[in-house]
Computed example of a mutant assay.
Amino acid sequence: MMKKFLSMLYVLFLSAALLAGCSFTSAKSAPKPASTSEGKASASEIEASAAEPVDVNIMALKGPTAMGMVQFMSQSDSGALTDNHYNFTIAAAVDEVTPKLVQGEIDIAAVPANLSSVLYNNTKGGIEVLAINTLGILYIVESGGTVASIEDLRGKTIYASGKGATPEYALNYILTKNNIDPAADVNIEWKSEHAECLAALMAEENAIAMLPQPFVTTAQIKSKSIRVALDLNKEWDTLQENNDKPSALITGVVVARREFVEINPGAVSAFMDHYRSSVEFVNTSVAEAAQLAGKYDIVPAAVAEKALPACNITFLDGAKLKEKLSGYLTVLLEQNPAAVGGELPADDFYYAR
């Protein structure tokens, strides 16, 4: 019965539909005593978990969300980190991450920002969001010279990928707030993959596409005629600048299973420290970080080196995490409640040390 339920959950996550909710199975981290009757770790469980290093199973997607981890990964592989056993896996698609997180095969994962809310709602609070790791990476690019503002998109065809996910919600929000009806004033031609948008951009004269990094850099390497016309991260910020609590366009976050956090608070805190240091390294040592991104088959080193400055890799936790992410999720909720799992997460969604 549980296997059937998890299978249904897996399918529904991929279609971004609402679910009835489920519970996490036990993780495969060690040590891991049983939880108390209230579903929270007892003081003795926490003390036991701190007695020796634990396995921390981490998964991230290829691209910017994993690029921020490369120094962390390298230090773990070299044996420089001895506080815990960090096991990293790089996935090619989000459908590889979700079931493993739900079934307890991984403890911490880098996922799309809106999926973190869906996961929270459909596991009845079974996950927490630890930090924002990537801000907006979406750009409007063109092979002509016709776009200098959002208004210039009116009446144009835009190739895009990510329908039913963050790219669609971000584009719709920015267009609508600039008095452009996404359904009537532009022709958005949705492709199944970013690579298809790139192919269309390369094949047509004066074509326009919405692409994320590092696909933007890949396009520019292939053709000198392709230029970045608009940074959607900046366009979002412009729309938010008069708000009392401005949100941000957010691409990715890091989440953890609540059970793992409660039983292993020291391991989670150590993870956060290592990850923050890794992000700082990636943003200040671009050439070295790019080589590591290539080594771990995340992004080719040559592409990574050119793309990293535009990937908006960051590390926001605590009050900044809650302010920025809650605002972003509110924008998505107003567009489509299913995008966040039906409702905004409660305060316990946001991790606090």
Results as ranks from 00 to 15, higher is better:
Ala109Tyr: 03
Ala110Phe: 01
Val111Cys: 03
Asn114Leu: 12
Asn114Thr: 09
Leu115Val: 09
Leu115Asp: 04
Leu119Ser: 07
Asn121Glu: 13
Thr123Ser: 15
Lys124Ser: 15
Val129Tyr: 03
Val129Pro: 00
Leu130Met: 12
Ala131Asp: 05
Ala131Gln: 05
Thr134Lys: 01
Thr134His: 05
Ile137Arg: 00
Tyr139Cys: 00
Tyr139Gly: 00
Glu142His: 02
Ser143Phe: 11
Gly144Val: 00
Gly144Lys: 00
Thr146Gln: 15
Val147Lys: 06
Ser149Cys: 04
Ser149Phe: 08
Ser149Ala: 08
Glu151Ser: 13
Leu153Gly: 00
Arg154Glu: 10
Thr157Val: 07
Thr157Gly: 01
Ile158Trp: 02
Ser161Asn: 13
Ser161Lys: 02
Ser161Met: 09
Lys163Cys: 10
Gly164Ala: 12
Ala165Tyr: 15
Pro167Lys: 06
Pro167Thr: 07
Glu168Ser: 06
Tyr169Lys: 04
Tyr169Ala: 05
Ala170Gly: 06
Tyr173Trp: 11
Leu175Trp: 07
Asn178Lys: 05
Asn178Thr: 13
Asn179Leu: 10
Asn179His: 15
Asn179Phe: 11
Asn179Gln: 14
Asp181Val: 06
Pro182Phe: 00
Ala183Leu: 10
Ala183Pro: 12
Ala183Cys: 07
Ala183Phe: 12
Val186Arg: 07
Val186Gln: 04
Ile188Gln: 09
His194Phe: 14
His194Thr: 10
Ala195Leu: 12
Cys197Lys: 02
Leu198Arg: 02
Ala199Glu: 14
Glu204Pro: 14
Glu205Trp: 09
Ile208Trp: 02
Ile208Phe: 00
Ile208Cys: 05
Ala209Pro: 04
Leu211Ser: 11
Pro212Cys: 01
Pro212His: 01
Pro214Leu: 00
Pro214Phe: 02
Pro214Ile: 00
Phe215Thr: 12
Thr217Asp: 05
Thr217Arg: 03
Thr218Gln: 11
Ala219Cys: 04
